[in-house]
Nucleic acid binder design. Sequence first.
DNA 1: GCCCTGACTCCTC
DNA 2: AGAGGAGCCAGGG
Length: 94
Amino acid sequence: MVRQIPPGKVLTYGAIARMMGRPRHARLVGRALWGTPSGRGIPCHRVVNSRGGTAPGWDGQRNLLENEGVPFHRNGRVVLERCLWQPDGEPPDE
DNA sequence: GCCCTGACTCCTC
DNA sequence: AGAGGAGCCAGGG
């Protein structure tokens, strides 16, 4: 699922969990990504929490996202309103 | 089997 | 808007 996230877009743990029918498994998604090997085409850096916060201990994630065009708030949070990916179809630009 | 911990989320102060 | 507490599921000691 994470692999389907296009560049410039992000997904939240809770969103993924709910897509899978497990709204309470947000942490499980995180732990799953924790064991996600790099180079598998799994852009785990496109996954942030509900507040748009990047993973702790992984500052490079923000750099990768910004590099893809993901807007960030001044406090270092991702602008979910602008880059939250929706597989059902992109929402209108306002 | 109990207790602590964690790439989470929500509510309240 | 930042900080603290509770609920959540699974893993490890």
